[in-house]
Amino acid sequence: MELLVEGVSHRYGNLQALEGIELAVREGETLALLGPSGCGKSTLLGIMGGLLAPSAGRVRVRGAAPPGSLNHFTYVFQDFALLPWRTVAGNVALALEHHPLGAAERARRIEEALRLTGLEEFARAYPKQLSGGMRQRVGIARATAVRPAVLFLDEPLSSLDAQTRELLMEDLVKIWGRERTTSVYVTHNLFEALRMADRIAVLSRRPGRVKEIVAVDIPLAERGAPEHAATITALHNRIWELIRDEVQVADREVHDG
């Protein structure tokens, strides 16, 4: 499924968060939204999936959803958003319970999602018993169980420590390699974007605008390979030049309240 963002602007009171965003997410690609904190990238993600009404502009979809898709626009959240009173399997089940699936089909989807994310042994555990990395795996399992047409990941690894993040990135690349779900990946982390995305939309700050869209023409699985190191470094430096000043401004900002 293709997602078209057309002239989207958004204001919070007097603050112009987004202005004139034009984006097209192509079928099967992973598009990263990269920018410093406060550039409105999470706001944009909310608007793209229909969780937030934009002040102006619209978002349209084109094409058919994959077969068996129960929830076309599905999110993975930075803070995991797991129900603490439900087990791992119960949290995944929440996404399926209101759909007319047979008990067997529901159980099969839960099992498959848990297997895909390496959570089979933890089906009966409660979120508080799990590490941050495992919790986010539950969030990812819940999202894959509904077979999304477009997957929205809102800083999915930002609450995790560096090592856990590394492990989860490897897993995500593997899952993506298999499913090829159209994805939008919000991050402030340039390395993450270079590892996970087919294209990187670099956003400016206040108001958030698309500065540039950079394609990373290396297959996801080969991003770590030595022969691509020079290309990655060049891309890294180029994007860093684009965002450096804004990161500095964001860093020096004093927050109210």
């Binding site: 999936g49 969780l51 959240f77 996404a95 209101h98």
Partner: peptide
Amino acid sequence: NLIRMAQSFNVPRHA
């Protein structure tokens, strides 16, 4: 955020 999550999965209001 739990309510937004449920809405993002189209969980009906009563649920």
